[in-house]
Design a protein around this nucleic acid. Structure first.
Lengths: 122, 122, 122, 122
DNA sequence: GTGGTCTAGACCACA
DNA sequence: GTGGTCTAGACCACG
């Protein structure tokens, strides 16, 4: 599990970390129960401040993707799955679909792209 | 074409305006050649600062969705269509797909959701 | 709305701020739609760091008690009310009830104390 | 008397142990004079560090809920009962009452909830 | 050694 | 001028 951060991106670093952890979990690289790197270790590895990593972990914890075990360490939590995409992501998906339509993709091409994105996390 | 802005959202207002214009174009509510409201009019209608609308228009112009009219107005441009989703949106789609997977949706359900989002802009 | 912080308490400062804002809203001192002090102002007034106040506001926002208006400022949100006490607080209430019982209070005395606490926020 | 510890909770483990002992005493499951498990036994049973259990016992002793037995054991002490809720818990109760009010509960509903919490420890 | 909290600065996007 | 983000330190509670 190696993180790639783009310091020039307008996406906040803590959100980039959060996104890549989510991608890692979805891809199975991070199995439920597996331990994440410590805040300090990840901060050093990425060359960012501890608080930035801490913020990412806090967000992930709040979203239920990970849990902080009081005995030390942070582990991936076996997420139950609500069975539905959150409203926020559904709205984002609509915008992306509009972009795709205006880029000239037809419904099949877009659906294929989406399947590919889904499979990417396998 | 009525804009719905959420002042409490974390998405910047200018981006909300931009997104809704893109959605409007994709849905055919805004046809190529059609004239957009003036910055002043839209700002008043939405109750936001003119600078905010200006920023949205600048972004849309820069992305090629609209073009400055000869007489100072702004019109929807006939989109060329590159035939591919921009890298930025492809990355966002991957994250959304991961969210969907972790929410418990299988590939078919996600693809169906994507088709729906695409059709929504019809 | 004046905040009283106890720097010696083991309750984190950001949580003290959060609690007092909740108490203020419940007491009607902070009406829905009313604007909260800016992070900077409150930080200076309380003699704490901006980030500490920011953390308290973030928590309150996440809990739905306040909303950050993008046009600047933070306002009290008219909370809908779920109609039930969260599990976390229900558990805390059980512990308090046990403490009361062991302190020698009977059911009536405890209920009276609870009513008083409820009315205190009127 | 079986303890249920949540390693993912933000409440420290030693405090969870302390709280459950208090709940156990209030509920009568632990009678005055009754002997508590040894630190070592409880630590093994719960899968936590001995120091953690020791900390909980120290706190309970300091609060007067338990006393050190002559031969090294620990027994539940006959609680004197001060007749009043400690200031700390009164403050916590106020916050909970505020939460309840904002959750939409009226005074009766809250009082009923409190009686229930009190009776729960019967 | 872990995460949690806090400080005293700073820069930036947004409006 | 607002909140959001980040840094480079530090101390503390917990286990």
């Amino acid at each position: 599990m190696l993180l790639r951060l783009d310091m020039a991106s307008r996406t906040p670093i803590y959100m980039q970390i959060r996104n890549q952890v989510v991608l890692g979990i979805a891809a199975g690289e991070l199995a439920p129960g597996e331990r994440l790197p410590t805040i300090r270790a990840l901060a050093e590895q990425c060359g960012v401040n501890m608080m930035t990593v801490s913020k990412a972990y806090s967000l992930l914890r709040q979203e239920g993707y990970i849990t902080a075990d009081r005995r030390g360490g942070t582990v991936v939590s076996g997420s139950p799955g609500t069975g539905a995409l959150s409203e926020k992501y559904a709205a984002a998906l609509k915008v992306i679909a509009a972009e795709a339509r205006l880029a000239g993709l037809d419904e099949e091409e877009f659906a294929s792209l989406c399947r590919q994105a889904y499979k990417g996390g396998a």
